[in-house]
């Protein structure tokens, strides 16, 4: 699987590159600035890009802007954005086009190599990987009268994990539930959130995230 990596700190770039290579990825480019990243993404068309939000030369959200620009050119280009801080604002911008293949994680998540690599693979496959911090903030925000409030605590847990991009079986493992029990919960969640059920796993998550996105926009 071909990866483009954008990170301006040498130590982190090197470490990420090593880790991804060790897990069987092919790092085709490791760049350090926004313009370089945009060029690499459009030229190399990688299977997935791992991008730091803040990049030179401006040291602002150049990585994010480059990733968004590339996705406008190549819709659905899988991008996993890493940052020292997570903002719902950025999450919503990444999700806005609704084409999937988006990840947004704290850099801390890299510590757990297995989970991180799992997230990269999910994003590459067109799925989602949202940082639990973002999800928690999104859920905390929805007001008293929001449909989210109608969910049971268990359903909220399921929704959180679903929004992170996990499959039913993965959710079942996490919560010590059978896969069919998770299925029942998800069906109930869709019912309460007025979302038409669909058998496509990825579309479900997208729908949920789009919903959260909408709820946050209020």
């Amino acid at each position: 699987m071909r990866v483009v990596l954008a990170e301006d700190l040498y130590l982190l770039r090197d470490g990420l590159s090593r880790m991804l290579t060790a897990h069987g990825f092919d790092v085709v480019a490791a760049v350090e600035t926004g313009p370089e990243l945009l060029a690499a993404l459009l030229e190399l068309r990688p299977d997935v890009a791992v991008v730091d939000v803040r990049l030179p030369p401006t040291q602002t959200d150049e990585g994010l802007q480059a990733a968004l620009a590339a996705r406008r050119e190549v819709p659905g280009l899988p991008v996993l954005v890493l940052s020292q801080h997570v903002e719902q604002l950025y999450a919503r911008e990444l999700l806005a086009d609704g084409t999937g293949g988006v990840g947004y994680l704290l850099k801390d998540r890299v510590f757990n190599a297995e989970q991180f690599v799992d997230a990269v693979r999910r994003v590459a496959g067109g799925g989602m990987a949202m940082d639990p911090d973002v999800i928690a903030k999104l859920l905390a925000r929805s007001g008293r009268d929001a449909p989210i409030a109608r969910l049971t605590p268990r359903e909220r847990e399921v929704l959180e994990l679903m929004a992170e991009g996990r499959s039913n079986s993965a959710i079942g493992q996490r919560l010590y539930l059978s896969e069919s029990a998770v299925g029942k919960h998800t069906a109930s969640i869709f019912g309460k959130l007025d979302l038409a059920p669909s058998d496509d796993d990825n579309r479900r998550v997208l729908a949920v995230l789009a919903y959260l996105n909408g709820a946050a926009g209020g």
């Binding site: 939000v53 040291q59 602002t60 959200d61 903002e87 719902q88 604002l89 919503r92 903030k137 925000r141």
Partner: peptide, 16 residues
């Protein structure tokens, strides 16, 4: 630092 005052206040609003 990354976006300026307006977006920073928007981010604040989202976290409220």
């Amino acid at each position: 630092a990354e976006r300026g005052l307006v977006d920073a206040v928007r981010a604040l609003a989202l976290d409220t």
